[in-house]
Design a protein around this nucleic acid. Structure first.
Lengths: 169, 169
DNA sequence: ACCTGAACACCGTTCAAGT
DNA sequence: ACCTGAACACCGTTCAAGT
């Protein structure tokens, strides 16, 4: 991983966070790091590789947000995930709305990200997956504006956390 | 809604279901209904309108799958949703992975789709939203290949259903 | 009213050429 | 080794012209 590659991925992240996924073009990305689009291909084989590198970075970021959660219960982890997603809504959508190129991600990254949830589930991996789905699903509904305008979003999170907690006892 | 519009939406659906979202181009869509791409603009103002019409149709389809579920518990609804998503994986991704154009969808459609879940939740709308998130989230993880290869997917669904059921009593 | 070919401003990507 | 301009095959969309 060269400095130039890191610089390019950082620029890609900035573009997505400020203007959304559709604003990430090779031409704009090149301009952001001071070169023309074709030159990017000297550093990455294609656009998908840049995206995979960025997805890995975002997942890493999320894993740290999980690890730094003030409390490691379902409630605390849901709060941490939700806070991260609200801080980086376009990045969250970018990472979540596409089939992840698993083979291009660092090994063990997803496991590491999920570890705190497995702990909160008392080691029950199935419940941990259900919890991941519920929390990510709520964030998705919220961020994509798919909850009715009058929905009490906090209460929906609370209901999910309550159900998960009941199941973990 | 003209016959030609219905025909175009049906063709768009067929293209997505067989070859995925990225295969839906105006040129290919035109060819599927026997005209050139520019002619499509006599029937729809733009590509986004075709997509909105298709999203509405898919949601309608899903609502019916819910309504036809053999049993109206969380378990039965989860089974129905999962079966529909497996039968139309690319359509599910198409509908789920984008911010829905709510203002272009028929009024009440989403409410109607969600109604069986609210009933299963004993009228608790917050729990119903948590349930929707959990089920849609699991389908998403499954369809996007984001569960570890050794994950017991059935058990993850069962864990979610159990948690939701515990919370509804 | 409906469909066409030609054109426009964009994409991602390749490649020969420059330093 | 790194960057460039020119080119290619695509996009979605507009528009004047045909029937």
């Amino acid at each position: 991983v060269t400095d130039r590659q890191r610089e390019i991925v950082a620029a890609a992240r900035a573009i997505i966070e400020t203007d959304g996924v559709e604003a990430l073009t090779m031409s704009r990305l090149g301009a952001a790091v001071g070169m023309r689009a074709p030159s990017l291909y000297k550093h990455f084989p294609d656009k998908a590789s840049v995206e995979a590198a960025l997805a890995a970075q975002a997942l890493e970021d999320l894993a740290q947000a999980f690890a730094r959660a003030d409390d490691a219960s379902f409630a605390g982890l849901a709060r941490a995930y939700r806070a991260w997603a609200h801080a980086h809504p376009r990045l969250h959508r970018f990472v979540n709305a596409r089939p992840l190129p698993r083979d291009r991600l660092p090994a063990g990254l997803e496991q590491r990200t999920a570890a705190p949830l497995i702990a909160a589930a008392g080691g029950d991996r199935d419940l941990a997956r259900a919890a991941w789905a519920a929390i990510a699903g709520l964030v998705d509904l919220e961020l994509n504006g798919r909850l009715p305008p009058d929905a009490d979003v906090d209460a929906a999170y609370a209901a999910a956390v309550r159900a998960l907690t009941l199941a973990s006892d």
